[in-house]
Design a protein around this nucleic acid. Structure first.
Lengths: 228, 228
DNA sequence: TCTCGTATATATGTATACAATTATACGGGA
DNA sequence: TCCCGTATAATTGTATACATATATACGAGA
């Protein structure tokens, strides 16, 4: 019997089912729908060009992902995310990113190592040019490389979940010059620890990298709009 | 806007939708369906007495929960869980249970503290009598109390997820006399640390409690059937 | 004017019908 | 006997119809 992925994701982004799911999901994450807004099956179905059936199935999944809340016989509502939720996620991520860095040190492939080095090189380049868009993209990618390199489907999925989750908030951060410079430096330190095979050091660095990212969010007042 | 639960679960166990979901889920977790077995929509629908529609919606959720894998246009297959998956989960849980114990120390209510003390008292009683069924139940409950006491929906949900997940394996363990005695002692230590307000100690103890539980599984050969 | 009950409209919940895809059975040809 | 193509059956994917629950509008009565 083969090894099945645990914690399956909606993989086929281009099947009809996947399209509906990802479309609604992206609309929520991009902030198109406001918190608390009710999503109607027919309206969304018509917009995408499908009937209610695929929409409903997507709703069920989005509920498990925590993006909407379905009240039986009433409707589906876009969920909010409180400041405490974000804080908790960063604390959890801090531990798990540390574990991930440790495992990545032991399992990273040559190709992944090279992509990580290239990522940091590019990040520093775009930081010097002030390209915020590319920087955010590369920042996300750095973490994803590490998730893939840790060689654990379980951990990779958990971290991708949380990563996606806080994107709603994070979208607005990382724009300050000082933080992005510091973040890049921290990425470089983590990368060098991984390359040197220093697992415990990598873990410690990834750990504090998350905590610092959170501290930065709080200090810059990004959390103010998420008070309960 | 109010605070919504992040990572929603299928709450209403007694609605039709919830019933279908939980029925299939329990059947998978109880081992009624074998790993790799194909689940057919009509067959399951007929058994429960509903049409394909609710079954399909339940399938979509079970896929996200990682219990089945849906191959488009083919079918739904019960997923396996490899020895490495179990190992990874225990490593992740070790960290998160530690964090949970730390937060529980800071947030546990009077009622929760009392239930925890009662839980340990009962555990030791049933252990002395050799009541394996009740011991397993109380063991699960001990952890759930801690999950609830940590006062973090995010962490609670993540831990309940993992906890549920390894139940498929754990169902068979904890039966040895020596391990259950040791496990009870560890629970007591954690409880006392929480009661004394020693957060870091509670974290450390919960940490190693998980690692020891995993070590026990491996040593007793419970993982042999889960080789990839 | 306010309250409450009823009627209507609207939305979700479920079942069914039809379409599309995949698996299976069968038979001809080498 | 084996291979392979076609026909058929079975299963999933989607749309639609009907059932049920909820929200809204309106009017009677106090």
């Amino acid at each position: 019997m083969g090894s099945y992925d645990v914690k399956q994701e909606v993989t086929d982004k281009y099947s009809l089912r996947g399209r509906v799911f990802h479309k609604i999901r992206d609309d929520i994450l991009s902030g198109r729908y406001r918190v608390g807004e009710e999503l109607r099956e027919v309206a969304i179905g018509e917009e995408i060009g499908v009937s209610r059936t695929p929409v409903r199935e997507a709703f069920r999944q989005l509920e498990l992902e925590g993006l909407i809340r379905i009240v039986p016989n009433k409707g589906a509502y876009v969920t909010g995310i409180t400041a405490k939720d974000v804080r908790d996620i960063y604390m959890i991520r801090s531990l798990l990113e540390g574990l991930c860095a440790r495992w990545a040190t032991e399992n990273i492939s040559k190709e992944q190592m090279e992509e990580m080095e290239e990522n940091i090189f590019l990040s520093e380049f775009h930081a010097s040019k002030g390209h915020t868009e590319q920087m955010a993209e590369l920042d996300n990618r750095f973490h994803e490389i590490m998730y893939e390199a840790c060689n654990s489907k379980m951990l990779e999925h958990a971290l991708k979940d949380y990563h996606q989750y806080v994107l709603r908030v994070r979208r607005k951060t990382l724009s300050t010059q000082t933080r992005s410079t510091a973040s890049n430096a921290e990425h470089r330190d983590i990368m060098e620890a991984i390359r040197a095979g220093e697992a415990e050091k990598a873990e410690r660095l990834a750990n504090s990298h998350m905590l610092k990212a959170y501290e930065n969010m709080v200090q810059n007042g990004y959390m103010e709009h998420y008070e309960e």
